[in-house]
Structure formats: structure tokens, C-alpha cells
Computed example of a mutant assay.
Amino acid sequence: MPGLGELRNARIDKPATASPGDRRMDLNTRIAQFEKMAADDPNNELGHFSLGRAYLEAQRFEEAAAALKRALDVNPQLSKAYDLLGEALERAGQADLAIEVLTRGVTVADERGDIKARDAMIDRLRAAGADVPPLRAAAAARGGGAGGTAAGAAGGMAGPAGGQTVEGFQCSRCGRPSGKHEKPPFKGAVGQKIMDHVCVSCFREWVMMGTKVINELGLVMANPRDQATYDSYMFEFLQLEQ
């Protein structure tokens, strides 16, 4: 039987465009899957995060907010979860709480170096007429220190086990500037992207989480559609842009 790396490198056929009814059914199916994943493992941050995003897509804003809050309880460093939670709260009519969440999210994302998530939340704050919290980059420019760099953001934390320290590298998930892969974990563009943006320790965490995803969703890795599902979970967990 081929390994996950070999299966991951197989060609994934692009599915045909679905009708609105098919998309609604697919969303309901995904929500049911995520609900089961979150219920089976209350500490599964990916399950809660994915459930919150699916609820948001279904315009179930209060449920989305509850799921995303739980994801942040499990992992307070999930920058994208703050952004989605802020949106869910805004659309649920809880503007003040949304501003509070987004303000905290900007600080977390800025410290982690998650520029895209940070800037999206800054845009939301400005649109709401709220103040933007001070940014580390601005503080570094004023003070001339390294506090606003990726290394400074790590706050002196020890790097993940394994991997190497390379100037300019910062893990997309944990924000640390060390633990870079010495070679891609598997072939292809996605393997290269993981090497460039994900530390060894976080990828090891995904390998364990990925096994849960396969088992809990009943994925068959020889099936191109299931491979695509697996990849979407992997990108969410590692906080990579697809």
C-alpha cells in the first residue's frame, strides 16, 4: 500500500461545478462532520475552527461565534480564528464584543508575524471606527531594537525540536523563527510550501492530527476528493494560504 507521501503527490481531479443545492448539501454535510469531530475530541482546535467557519458560511452567526471561541480556548494563537470570530460577532449584532476580539487578534497576529490576518482585522477595526492597537513593527522603528522582528516576537522561546534556524524563516502556525525543515516532507509544490513556512514540530503535530482527520471523517486517501479534503484540513491546521 502506498504511503501518505505518495498518495499526496497523486493528481487531484478538479470536481465539476456544483449547483446551489449541491453546495448547500455539501455545507450541511461538512457541518455534520465538524460537529462530530468537535464532539469526539473537545480539545481538537481544528474541529472547532472548521465548525465555526462552516457555521459562518451558513450564516449561523451565534453558533459560529461559540465554536470559534472554543477554538481560541484550545489555542489562543490562532490568528485567523480571531478574524472569523470578529466577523461572526459583528454579523450577530455584537459590535462592541467584536471590536474587543479584533483588537486582541491584531496584537496576537502582529506578534506572530501573521501579516495577512493582522491587516484584515485592522481593516475591520477601522471600518467600525475603532482604534488600532500599537504594532510591534512600529515600536521597533521608534526604538531601533529587534523587538519587532520575527526573532523578537518569539520572546526568547526555545525553537521546536528538530529542524534548523534560517534567517527570515517564521513558522506560519507557531510563529517561531526556528525549526525549518532541511528538505520538503514530501514531493511537489505543497511539500515545498511546508518546508518554506512550517516548522518541523508543527508539521509533526499535523501528522498526528491528520490521522484523526482520516479516521474521524473516514477518508480514503486513494480517492482524489478525499485527498483534497485532507489537504484543506492540513492547510487550516498549519495556517497556510491555499
Score class of each variant (00 low, 15 high):
residue 101 V to Q: 06
residue 151 A to D: 12
residue 154 A to E: 00
residue 132 V to D: 05
residue 154 A to V: 00
residue 145 G to C: 14
residue 148 G to D: 13
residue 121 M to N: 06
residue 103 T to H: 11
residue 109 A to M: 05
residue 114 D to C: 08
residue 155 G to M: 00
residue 125 L to S: 03
residue 106 V to F: 03
residue 125 L to G: 05
residue 105 G to A: 01
residue 143 G to F: 14
residue 112 R to A: 15
residue 149 T to N: 11
residue 127 A to C: 10
residue 106 V to D: 03
residue 139 A to K: 04
residue 113 G to C: 14
residue 151 A to M: 07
residue 147 G to S: 10
residue 109 A to E: 02
residue 135 L to F: 04
residue 124 R to M: 09
residue 156 G to A: 06
residue 132 V to M: 03
residue 142 R to Q: 13
residue 122 I to F: 11
residue 120 A to H: 11
residue 146 A to L: 15
residue 152 G to E: 07
residue 98 A to T: 02
residue 125 L to K: 05
residue 142 R to W: 08
residue 95 A to Q: 15
residue 105 G to Q: 00
residue 113 G to W: 11
residue 114 D to K: 12
residue 121 M to S: 11
residue 108 V to G: 02
residue 141 A to M: 15
residue 129 G to R: 04
residue 95 A to P: 10
residue 123 D to M: 10
residue 127 A to L: 11
residue 129 G to E: 05
residue 111 E to I: 15
residue 140 A to K: 01
residue 124 R to V: 05
residue 138 A to P: 09
residue 154 A to H: 00
residue 96 D to S: 14
residue 155 G to T: 00
residue 110 D to A: 06
residue 117 A to V: 05
residue 156 G to I: 05
residue 130 A to K: 00
residue 152 G to I: 03
residue 151 A to L: 12
residue 152 G to V: 05
residue 144 G to N: 14
residue 147 G to K: 05
residue 110 D to P: 01
residue 154 A to P: 00
residue 108 V to C: 08
residue 108 V to N: 06
residue 117 A to G: 02
residue 121 M to L: 08
residue 131 D to C: 07
residue 103 T to C: 09
residue 129 G to H: 01
residue 124 R to D: 07
residue 104 R to H: 02
residue 157 M to Y: 01
residue 140 A to I: 03
residue 125 L to A: 02
residue 108 V to S: 04
residue 114 D to G: 08
residue 106 V to T: 06
residue 96 D to N: 14
residue 135 L to P: 07
residue 107 T to Q: 09
residue 106 V to A: 06
residue 109 A to G: 09
residue 98 A to L: 02
residue 115 I to L: 15
residue 121 M to T: 08
residue 143 G to Y: 13
residue 96 D to Y: 10
residue 130 A to H: 00
residue 105 G to D: 00
residue 128 A to P: 07
residue 138 A to I: 07
residue 123 D to W: 06
residue 104 R to M: 01
residue 137 A to S: 13
